[in-house]
Amino acid sequence: MALIETKGLKAFYGDFQALFGVDITVDAGETIAIIGANGAGKTTLMRSISGVLANDPGSILHNDAPIGALPAPDVLARGIAMVPEGRKLFPSLTVEENLLVGAYGRRAQGEWTLDSLYALFPVLKERRKSPAMALSGGQQQMVAICRALMSNPSVLLCDEISLGLAPAVVRAIYAAFPRIRASGASIVIVEQDIGQALKVAGRVYCMMEGRITLSGRASELGHDEIHKAYFGAERHELA
């Protein structure tokens, strides 16, 4: 039984349809990557799973229970936490206060505390009393990840966490993922960077125009088929 499963997931913003029958699965303890260009529907998929967007109840399952219509706080209480694109930190709060916000709705089972998170990213302990917005972009991203981990999630959704960051900072953030998986959490990464996604994910889904165009094990997918699924057949031929 999959930990997370979407079944024919459709999503709308008013009359605009953003997802068209998306099927994905996330198993316990694995890392999957959702790749695709801007506008492919990746963030909409994350917003749907996390309860930010309401969907048909049975279109999203968690441990085989329908959660598609649950509001975000109820989804979080089930152990699904999201690191949103753009971080969305509280600018009036310090680093540590932002982390403590993540403890609201916290699951009892799990090992993440302020001390364990400061061990994961030591720079945050040094800056814990600083205003969150006084940190660098990479450090703010670490805060956003740790805020989500404070809820002790079984599934961590990471939406474009490398966007706009220097390569060295991205490597430092991704270096923490084995430790996060060791805590028992599955990780879903939304990435535009194909190379980065293939390095860390066991399985990959490629999206284009609200649909899954390719899926498989990262180690078995060829460059050409990924390129074709990412950009489309016509663009692939012109490339």
Results as ranks from 00 to 15, higher is better:
S151E: 07
C158H: 05
S151R: 14
G195R: 15
V123T: 13
S186N: 06
A172T: 04
C158I: 14
A132Q: 03
S130E: 15
M150Y: 04
P131S: 10
C146G: 04
A144R: 11
A176H: 08
A168Q: 14
S183K: 05
P178G: 06
F177E: 01
R127K: 15
R181T: 11
A148Q: 02
A166Q: 03
L156Q: 02
G195S: 15
C146K: 07
I187K: 12
R181V: 09
P167R: 04
E160D: 03
S186Y: 04
Y174F: 15
R171C: 01
S154K: 15
R147D: 14
M142E: 09
A172C: 00
G195L: 09
A148R: 01
L124A: 10
S151T: 12
K125T: 01
F177V: 11
I173P: 07
P131Y: 08
P153N: 03
P167T: 07
I173H: 03
I161E: 08
D159C: 05
M133C: 06
R128H: 13
C158A: 11
S186T: 12
S136D: 00
A166C: 01
K129F: 14
L149R: 09
A134H: 06
L157D: 07
K129E: 14
V123S: 14
V143G: 10
M133K: 02
E160Y: 00
M150Q: 04
R128W: 10
